[in-house]
Every structure is written in C-alpha cells, then in structure tokens.
Write a protein that binds this DNA or RNA. Sequence first.
DNA 1: CCAGCGAATGAATGCGGTTTCATTGCTGTT
DNA 2: AACAGCAATGAAACCGCATTCATTCGCTGG
Lengths: 330, 330
Amino acid sequence: MVTLRDVARAAGVSPATASRALGNPDVVAVSTRERVLRTARELGYRANQAARALATGNSGMIGLVLPDIESPFFASIAKGVDARARELGSAVLIADTEEDAALEFEIAARVQERVEGVILCSPRMSRAHLEELAALGPVVLVNREAGGLPSVSFDTPAGVREALVLLHGLGHRSVGYVGGPRSAWSDAERRSTLDAVAGLEVDGLDIVDLGHHRPVFSSGVAAADAAAASGATAVLCYNDLVALGVIRRLQSRGIRVPEDISVVGFDDIPFATLAAPPLTTVAVPWAPAGRAAVDLLLGTGRPQAPQHFRLAVDLVVRDSTGAGPAGNAE
Amino acid sequence: MVTLRDVARAAGVSPATASRALGNPDVVAVSTRERVLRTARELGYRANQAARALATGNSGMIGLVLPDIESPFFASIAKGVDARARELGSAVLIADTEEDAALEFEIAARVQERVEGVILCSPRMSRAHLEELAALGPVVLVNREAGGLPSVSFDTPAGVREALVLLHGLGHRSVGYVGGPRSAWSDAERRSTLDAVAGLEVDGLDIVDLGHHRPVFSSGVAAADAAAASGATAVLCYNDLVALGVIRRLQSRGIRVPEDISVVGFDDIPFATLAAPPLTTVAVPWAPAGRAAVDLLLGTGRPQAPQHFRLAVDLVVRDSTGAGPAGNAE
DNA sequence: CCAGCGAATGAATGCGGTTTCATTGCTGTT
DNA sequence: AACAGCAATGAAACCGCATTCATTCGCTGG
C-alpha cells in the first residue's frame, strides 16, 4: 500500500506539503502541487479514509436506517439519499432493520458510531430511544415527527383533501376509508383529516370507516368486501398495495372499477401505473424526501436553516376513479 | 466525547488493558474485565471506529455497488447482503450507479477506498476496469462472470430448459423469445440455451426470435405484437416486467392469457404473484445471492474455498401458462 | 539598504485505538 | 531454596493523515 509519505518522498517534499497539495491545493506553489499530484497518480496513491477520518474527526459518511429496503418507497428514499449524498461528497452506510422495532435502536446506534449522522425512515422506536440516539449524534427523521428533531414529512392532509374533492366532484357522496395499521402515525393523521374535510369543507360527504388493515396486497380482499357491503361508491386506501388488492378483489367479484366503485391509493408506487386500471393515487415524493433529509443532516445552508421540511404531495388522477351515482356529478 | 483513555483512567488501568478488556476479553483477569466493562457502560463509551480501522487496518465495512436500488431484484440483493453482513458484524456501504456504465468504475473505486471489499451487481464496466478494481481490493461479482474473479451467478440455462419442457409438455410447439438488451450477458446466455434445448433435448420445438427489447413494462407492446404476428403459442420473456407488459398488451388486443397464448417471465419479482393472471416465471434467488456474495467476499470458510457460486433457479408455475394447441398435450 | 511582511515549506504533534515487548509477581518443580 | 514458566498488566510505538507552529527566503517600502 502506498501512503502519503511515499508520495512525499518520491516528490521530494515533506508529508505536510504533500497533504496540502492534495487537500488544500491553493496554499502550495503551483509547481510543487503539480509535481505531487503527478507522482501521486504515478504511484497509484489512494488516501486511507480511516486515517483521514481519524485526523479530521469527519468520516464523510452518513447513515440510512430503514425498515425494509425491498419496499418501493423506502427504496426510493434510498435512491434520493444516495444521489444527494454523492453530490455532497458523502458515502452512505445503509442498514435494514427488517421491520423490527426492537432491533431498530440497536442498529441505528451502531451505525451512528461510524457516520456523521443518521437518517431514520419511518422509525418505529419510542420517543425516548429517538432522543437517546440524537444524543449520540445528528439525526434526521423521515415520515415521522418527534419533539424538536429535524424531520421531513409530507403534507398528506392536503392529499386527502384533494382526493375527497375529486371524488365529491365526480358525484360520490359516500366514500370508504381503508385504514392502515392501528399503530401507524400516518393513519391517525389521515383519519382526522378525513373527518375534518367531510365535516367542514365538503358538503354532504359521508366517510365510512372500513377498519384497520395491514398495508399489503392481500388485505385487499377483506377491505373490498367491507367496501362492497358498506354501500360506499368510492374507496380511499391507506396504501397503493391495498388499493391494488381491493381492485383485484372487486373485479373478481364482478364489481367494475371505476364504473361501480372508484378506488384511490396512496404513495404512487411504480406499479400503480401498470395496474389495470391504472391507479388514481396520492403521489408522495419519496426521493425528494431523501434528498431533503441529507440536506438537513449535513446542514447545507445557514446555521439556522429550517429544521423541518414538509413536502407537498400530488394527487395523480388515472383510471381507477370515475363518476359516482348519476345525478350527483357537477 | 469519551475515549478509551477516559475509561481506562476511570477504571484505574492502562489504555492497553482497557482495550484488551473490550476486544480480547480472555486475556485479562475477570475482575479487571468486569470493572472496565462497567465503567465503560457508565461513561457511555463508544469506540471510535475510524481509530480502530486505522489501527487494525480493517474497516469492518463492505461495499455494495448496484445499477439501481429501486429495481426489485437489486433491492433483494441488497437485502441479502445487508442481512448476511450484519450476521458477520460488518456494515454495508451502498452506492447506486444510476445505470451509468461510465460512472460505475469511478464510484466503485471510491467505495473501495473505505471498505474491505466490494460486491458488484450486474456490473456493466469493461473487463479491464473490473480487473483494475480488483487490484484495488477484493471484489465479488453478482450476475456476471469475468476472468478469475469470484462471482455468484445463476443457473439460468436450467431455468430456460425447465420452462421449455413445461411448455412442450403443455402442447406448445412454437415458442417465442422476447429478448433483453443486445449488450446483456444474460441475454446471450439464454439464447444459446434456447437453441441448444430446442435443437437437442426437446423434439419438435420451434424457437422464434422476437427481437431485443429494453427490459421494461412498456416494451411489452411491441413484443406482444410481434408475438401475436409470429404465430407462437407461448412466449418466454427476458424479464417479468416485459412479461407483464406483454400480457397487458395481449389482453387489450383481446388475446387471452393463457388460453390463446402462454407467457413465462424471468426473475419472480414481488408483483408477479399479484398480476392477473399470476405470472409463471423463473424465480431467481436474488437475496441468497447477496448472502453468498458476502460469504465469498469475507472468505468465510477455508482459504481455498470455492470462488464461484452458481445458484439454482426455480420455475414457479402460476396461471399465465396453459395448454397449447389441442392434440399436442401429453 | 535594511526592517518587515507574506508566501512556501518542514518538523512535530495529535486523532483514538491496537499491539508488541518488557516488567512484575506468582505458582510449582526439582 | 532457587529458578523456570506463566498470567496479568503497563509503557510505548505505531496506523496514515491533517494541522499547528516555526523557519526560510524573496520582496516591498520607507
């Protein structure tokens, strides 16, 4: 392995100068710098990052902790984080917690030892653990808010509202809500928005609670049956996956989408476009959230830059929504 | 920040002993060890990984370089790598090359500086670059073979063969092949297997070349049209995504799957089960491949352990395949 | 013409661990 | 009783780089 001293010796300068030539080019004479750079290249010198990290106290890495890298939205967050980190010259240490709330803290703490700070995606850990982690080093939350910790979240209430307005405009007067897990922060948020919107902003709209469901495709059958029984003419789902499941079940029971029942999802996963019919859904900007999280973590911007980002969501209307009962449409 | 010296001082031992108590517990007296461990815990000591890496020359990290973390199979590989790495006490540094062959080498080289070795997934870079990278540190290839470099690949020929046997057994005599990108190593491999099997192992089976296509859903329409025009009664696709696209296009033209045409995919992405009809496909063990790659990289096993893994694939028969022309079925 | 200044460089130190080597104090053997 | 041998520990030397501080040298300005 060729070290900086080797380069320095070969170039006829001191290690200090060699170091400067590489890392602080403008404090060294042009001729010297070029000589050092050239011999470094010739010798195939590669800086030892561990040594650099030790000397500067700066690892040049950030951590990314998420429940499941195979989930489309976490993968998208990872994509955003990776891209932004590269732009800023940082490397990304990734850790999958396998949806295990108990492991989550341990894993994150171990990651924190190696990096400048960690990005926690939809963390399930307790608030106390969150704060303990924050004591170990910088932390940024994605899709969760807690205390004063920096976070990036989404304006899902606006998305819910938009969806409801769309549905109402199409003539629907009774829309079902297929909820997510009871423990999910975002499920609670959506329910309260639903009630608020139906009660105040939109006239004569009835929300029917279709229960809590695991956010997976197969939950669709129970949810679809409940929807069909409820008399709702439109369904808003916690998740694209369950929306897709609902559609499938509806179709296999001979109920047409959107002619008989309209379905709206959440997330806009890649497959939403490819489904039949293509899914109307509230698109959540996962990748931009990843980028924003990196910016928050690395403090790009002034010392007193905002500590919270709330990203706008976007209702994308495709073909799983259509006119409601005749006579209602505007 | 609390260092090892702080712990040592507080415990009344030398830094050397403190270090041993933590990292090499059996060479230190029980009483001493416990005292050190306790004070370390009390002080909230966390080892500085950079310092450890510098001293031991061992970063405890491995690199994972892949073209696109949002692709289901790369995500699965990542999952496997992450899980196995954690079992072995390593952290994983991830880098997404954004499908950019030119960036790939640069990114991998930069990753190599920080880790013990890197796992390259479906690398597009030249053989020369591959070897240059290997000179920088240990390298393991996934889904590609090159020179003597350690690799884990898949026995796709067996999968192709299985699929063909299934189709022939169902009475199909003319099956189309929807190919992948011209540059893909695995496409070439499949084509030659196709020819070999059709020519030698299975009687009276005709393979019709349906051209090269980008491995995405939307390629399905061109491929489906070509298939319909070719008179083939079954189609084998490079990819689940194009298989799904083919099915969609076929259906929208009023051609039924599998009654009129059978379709077989490759990969078994999560959505293959959820499609209508559920897709018959050759399942590739991506996550196990990730695990195997880690084992190869970290040299779990004897010094002269095998340097190549070739994992078995598995044809999973679902509902996109059915009987061919009447009278042929066995 | 010389004091004084700034640019360029080198010597030395530290970052926080690990590890070699030497030292100390015992136990057990002859 | 003396000594070999071993277990437990400490002192000190790195690991490879960044950085502070001191030094040298060529210039400028009074």
